[in-house]
């Protein structure tokens, strides 16, 4: 037992630069992948819930785009990210006659596309779940569909989907480990290298396991705090109340 802890301590003290480098790369991949995936999700979600145009050409174009999005979602949700990584990375090499993209860039592309497929569904569900009355209320004062989305629907959508987005982020912290198959130097890949140097397989992966948990746990707590913040205050100030310094009109920019 004492031997085990001393091995663990050795790994931490000896390999902490590699481990930290792995942590950094893992967080970079997970964060950029989640953000880009969310952007993909919002764009596709808006497109898929937008009313069809009266113009025949635009209508056909819109329907075609919807079909492509649906296929994209099905394919990337229905295959493992590890396989997607191999297909995209080596597919690019095949198509360009042997060129490869930089590893980190490849990793970001793969995680983003994969996350985008899940986000597309999360955003679509989020838009559908917003009360139809919000759209009608906006239409009745003369807002266009674009204005309605930007000023009324998306702010409510962001609040509604935040728990699911947080969840995707945590999943990505863990799932970026599969990118080791193309050699991206994230945390799992680093631990593989360490293990080959010290031959202490169990001890090395134990350390890595704890590090993954610390990352996901911390991120979960931080995101929970942000969710609470976005919920907003439960009370409001009566305008003209003299006991409360906040009781004056604040109009946020763009109100």
């Amino acid at each position: 037992m004492i031997q085990f802890f001393s091995d663990v301590w050795d790994i931490i003290t000896k390999y902490y630069p590699q481990l930290l480098q792995g942590v950094g790369k893992t967080l970079l991949l997970a964060l950029t992948g989640t953000v880009i995936g969310l952007i993909i999700g919002i764009l596709t979600g808006i497109l898929r819930t937008a009313p069809l145009s009266k113009n025949l050409f635009l209508r056909i174009l819109h329907k075609a785009a919807n079909g492509i999005i649906a296929a994209y979602v099905e394919i990337f949700r229905g295959t493992p990210m590890m396989v997607q990584a191999m297909v995209i990375f080596w597919g690019y090499a095949f198509a360009t006659g042997g060129n490869t993209l930089p590893l980190t860039l490849s990793g970001i592309i793969i995680v983003s596309i994969n996350t985008g497929a899940y986000m597309a569904e999360i955003v679509r569900g989020g838009i559908i779940s917003i009360d139809k009355g919000q759209f009608e209320g906006a239409a009745a004062v003369g807002m266009t569909h674009g204005q309605t989305m930007l000023h009324v629907i998306i702010p409510q959508l962001m609040r509604n989907i935040l728990p699911s987005v947080s969840n995707e982020f945590v999943i990505n912290i863990k799932d970026t480990s599969v990118l080791n198959v193309i050699g991206v130097a994230e945390l799992y890949y680093m631990s593989d290298i360490i293990k080959r140097q010290n031959f202490k397989t169990f001890q090395t992966y134990f350390v890595v396991c704890v590090i993954y948990f610390i990352m996901t746990f911390t991120v979960t707590r931080i995101l929970r705090l942000i969710e609470k913040k976005l919920e907003g205050k439960e009370n409001y100030t009566i305008f003209g109340s003299q006991s409360d310094p906040d009781a004056e009109i604040h109009v946020e920019k763009g109100a």
């Binding site: 009355g133 209320g137 702010p155």
Partner: peptide, 8 residues
Amino acid sequence: FNLFNNMT
């Protein structure tokens, strides 16, 4: 009513 829920 259909007030915008995200606005004051």
